[in-house]
């Protein structure tokens, strides 16, 4: 069939394109005379990995949401509220494990509410989650009485430590969690009915419904799963800061969405991958890291990341047009 060669180019392009970006960024900074000696050092790589954990966990859930044709603007507020709840619980004397679980469940609850409202009120996710963005942020500030919540240091604060406690771990436990969950979610998307249905809903919701896919349930479920990951990201934020800060992570939802989009996620649904999103996360993390090492001011980073987002999506468009 004449389709064959076309598919190959397509597949190769789809596979390589996101990696290319990452390789390009790394190669670029490794070649810079000022930073080349330090950039690829283990210590720096470790630090980049640790810095990526929070955005990465958020991106794992956001990938599901975006593939399913949705969006979650409340992601960063969710992280803030979850971190405040975790700090609050531990500060109140609850065992750290319970604090961790409560933080994650808070995130899950926000996701559940998002998903339920989107499917029941039949409103676009943009509006619902934009509302939730304010609600969750406000709730976080309210619970924390508009200040940071101090909490006693516990093993939770070790989760994001660059020198992990049993030294054989090498990477912070948070980084390991990120890797494990990335693999788990990649498997879920590819090898489960749930994952297949997310793609179907994002690709053509009417067709999915007609084929007997339980679209409402699936949507609520993927928003909830996404919320759980944001809750975990919130706990990691608390672990890193050692306090529950209701003003943390403002604007982070855009970083998370950008990571998914750079990784090939389509805002019109039906497309995206965990691998791609993780690459998106690391492209942005390496860029930030490299720019900092170069001593470039913050605004340069912002401009570069802005350009990368537009370029990545434009590339995506070109791929689409070739498909059409």
């Amino acid at each position: 069939m004449t389709l064959r060669p076309k598919i190959k180019i397509q597949t190769v392009l789809n596979l390589v394109a996101p990696f290319m970006g990452l390789i390009l960024v790394i190669a670029l900074f490794s070649a810079m005379p000022d930073v080349q000696s330090r950039f690829l050092r283990a210590a720096n790589l470790k630090s980049v990995a640790t810095q990526s954990v929070i955005v990465a966990l958020g991106a794992l859930g956001m990938t599901l949401v975006i593939i399913g044709g949705g969006i979650d603007l409340s992601a960063a507020s969710n992280i803030a509220l979850s971190s405040v709840i975790a700090a609050y619980a531990i500060n109140a004397g609850l065992p750290p494990l319970l604090g961790l679980v409560l933080g994650i469940l808070t995130g899950g609850l926000i996701g559940l509410v998002n998903g339920t409202l989107i499917t029941r009120l039949k409103l676009v996710p943009f509006i619902i989650t934009m509302g939730m963005m304010g609600i969750a942020r406000g709730a976080a500030k309210w619970i924390a009485r508009n200040q940071k919540i101090d909490a006693p240091l516990t093993w939770i604060n070790e989760l994001m430590s660059k020198s992990p406690h049993p030294p054989w771990l090498v990477l912070a436990p948070g980084v390991w969690l990120m890797i494990v969950f990335a693999v788990v979610m990649a498997v879920v998307l590819r090898y489960t009915v749930f994952g297949r249905h997310i793609f179907a809903i994002g690709s053509n919701e009417a067709a999915a419904r007609l084929c007997g896919v339980r679209t409402v349930r699936t949507k609520i479920l993927f928003y909830t799963v996404s919320g759980l990951f944001l809750g975990l990201a919130g706990v990691m934020e608390f672990s890193r800061l050692t306090v529950g800060d209701p003003t943390v992570a403002v604007g982070l939802e855009l970083d998370i969405i950008a990571a998914v989009v750079i990784g090939g996620g389509s805002l019109s649904g039906g497309e995206g991958s965990i691998m791609g999103s993780m690459i998106g996360v690391f492209i942005m993390a390496f860029l930030r890291n490299g720019c900092t090492m170069m001593g470039w001011p913050n605004y340069i980073q912002e401009i570069i990341i802005g350009v990368i987002i537009v370029a990545a999506v434009a590339l995506d468009q070109v791929r689409h047009r070739r498909t059409a």
Partner: peptide
């Protein structure tokens, strides 16, 4: 009534996936 991003296989069994 097909989901354009899903493959032929995925579309044919959509909603009836064996699992």
């Amino acid at each position: 009534n097909l989901a354009p991003h899903l493959t032929v296989e995925e579309n044919v069994v959509l909603g009836r996936e064996a699992s």
